[in-house]
Design a protein around this nucleic acid. Structure first.
Length: 502
RNA sequence: GGUCCAUUCGUCUAGUGGUUAGGACGUCAGGUUUUCAUCCUGGUAACAGGGGUUCGAUUCCCCUAUGGACUACCA
């Protein structure tokens, strides 16, 4: 049995967005599920759109996501080079093969001339298609006499090589996700295969490389579906066996219209990139926003694919095990930023207190607090289930580190009565009698005391919370007292009485 | 405009020629929590429309509508 080889083939024109990451992920899952090879090929045949740093960004993004490349620029492999600009020399000979076979030809039309034709066609409500219908009237080796076009060629006049799309043929082919598709070749055009700058276009480079790299399955975005007939046609012309194709549905904008684009992130307040992109127009990434790669990947995997069971939380290994291309949907998926947060919450709960303490310690440092890791573990334990992100731990625990500076006026109005200061002072002296202020011990002491005195539990507890936290929020009050200690508790009671007064 | 693709709760989706059309996110309500959040329980909400085929269509076919992709010497 032939081994599976798939490739993710982005073009380094900027940061990879989540749609691209998902394509990479599905390729990876498919490869690993089938004990195959995942290849990263950089398609940089358009020199004009090359963006510095993009290639490195792509590799780092995959790494952060836990998508491991088997063959690629950094990893090496037997089918390199893995960057198309480094393969420049291999493409021309294949274009020539097509010319020799009569399946391609030289064309000398300038971009300006073609633009003109398109504009003219548009005026009459038509679309200009460079194909068998007009080929003979244009400036190419099909229309010109042989001596004429050879002369142009020899004189160094710029030219492109175009594929000679057959006339009026119903062309049948299959897509793993879409099924059987039939297209009449008259609706297709004579695509440029080789550009005047000496570089191949996507179509040629892609087919040649997939063949040379022995790719068995092409899994890519749906935006390529319209050019699939051309690609199959090329395989036929070369007399190569075509790989299987699977076109993934697109990711759509959360608010409705159109496919998700790189600009949507900042516009709608959620990241569309895995990592921060520091060049040009800067854009935030999931990593910097505090998402775990496992959560990000889990969400992405389920956007357009489902396991057919009700399981939702998947590790990468579980995804590999469960993945199947037949369970990829046909329609576009609207990206929902809310659901990623939920996934992150799930993954955060699965982390150990020690891991979270280490992560939180970094944030604490930036706030100027240096706390023993053991203490942080006990703190994290108290609040972890309340948060979805590590950075939110600070929002839930700021009052553990800093006494309240202000007191929520609304809470004061509702919970601070005439006799509150006196009660709190009483409570203080009651607590002073105890040395052990564990949460359980504190709870026992306070509750017994409240009962003995016949006070209202709500009144005491809320007032106490108010002086300790500054507002009516946060975890159990006994946990707070236990963590900050007796002295700090007393200081806060005094300060609260002093500031709130009466 | 042309070509191709798609269409189940607001969103991601399961599903079947006969189901109370299932789950998750969100949302709402109740419970737990002396607070807030979490959590638990419950509710809300969908087969785009019209024709067929059929004893019966959400499911199969056609049309329409809507959405999307492509329509470059970009990928």
């Amino acid at each position: 049995m032939e081994s599976v080889r798939v490739r993710f083939a982005p073009s380094p024109t900027g940061p990879l967005h989540i749609g691209g990451v998902r394509t990479a992920l599905y390729n990876y899952l498919f490869a690993k599920k089938n004990k195959g090879t995942f290849i990263l090929r950089i398609e940089d045949t358009d020199q004009g759109r090359f963006v510095e740093g993009a290639e490195e960004y792509i590799m780092q993004s995959l790494e952060w996501c836990g998508i491991k490349v088997d063959e690629g620029i950094k990893e090496g492999g037997d089918y390199g080079p893995y960057r198309q600009s480094d393969r420049k020399d291999v493409y021309r000979q294949y274009a020539d093969v097509l010319i020799d076979k009569g399946d391609a030809y030289y064309a000398f039309d300038t971009p300006a001339e073609l633009d003109q034709l398109r504009i003219q066609a548009e005026k009459t409500g038509n679309t200009f298609i460079y194909n068998s219908a007009v080929r003979g009237m244009l400036n190419n080796s099909e229309s010109l006499p042989e001596n004429k076009w050879k002369e142009k060629l020899n004189s160094g006049e710029p030219y492109v090589i175009r594929y000679k799309m057959p006339r009026n043929e119903d062309f049948h082919f299959d897509d793993v996700i879409r099924g059987h598709i039939v297209v009449n070749t008259d609706t297709l055009d004579d695509k440029v295969l080789f550009k005047s700058d000496g570089m191949p276009t996507y179509h040629l480079a892609n087919i040649v490389d997939d063949h040379l790299m022995e790719i068995t399955h092409v899994i890519r975005g749906e935006e390529w579906l319209p050019s699939l007939p051309l690609h199959f046609m090329l395989y036929r012309s070369f007399d190569w066996r075509a790989p299987l194709f699977a076109h993934l549905p697109l990711l759509l904008k959360p608010d409705g219209k159109g496919k998700l684009s790189k600009r949507d992130g900042d516009k709608m307040g959620f990241p569309v990139f895995p990592l921060f992109w520091p060049y040009g127009e800067t854009a935030k990434g999931y990593r910097e926003e505090g998402y775990y790669p496992e959560a990000f990947i889990n969400m992405l995997a389920l956007l357009g694919w489902n396991p057919g069971t009700e399981q939702e939380i998947f590790s990468m290994d579980e995804l590999i095990e469960a993945f199947s291309i037949d369970r990829v949907g046909k329609s576009g998926s609207r990206f929902d930023p809310e659901k990623v947060k939920w996934f992150n919450h799930q993954y955060l709960q699965k982390r150990t207190d020690n891991q979270l303490a280490i992560e939180f310690r970094e944030i604490l440092r930036t706030k100027g607090h240096h706390v023993d890791i053991g203490e942080l573990e006990s703190l994290v334990k108290i609040v972890k289930e309340r948060v979805s992100f590590v950075r939110e731990i600070w929002d839930q625990t700021d009052f553990f580190f800093e006494a309240p500076k202000t007191y929520d006026p609304e809470a004061v109005r509702k919970r601070w009565k005439e006799d509150t200061p006196a009660i709190l002072r009483e409570l203080k002296s009651e607590l002073a009698k105890t040395d052990n202020l564990s949460a359980a011990q504190t709870e026992a002491v306070i509750k017994a005391w409240i009962e003995y005195k016949g006070y209202s539990t709500g009144a005491v507890m809320n007032a106490l919370r108010l002086v300790l936290v500054g507002s009516l929020r946060g975890p159990h009050i006994f946990d707070i007292i236990s963590w900050i200690g007796k002295e700090e508790t007393f200081r806060r009671i005094d300060k609260g009485i002093d500031v709130i007064g009466r």
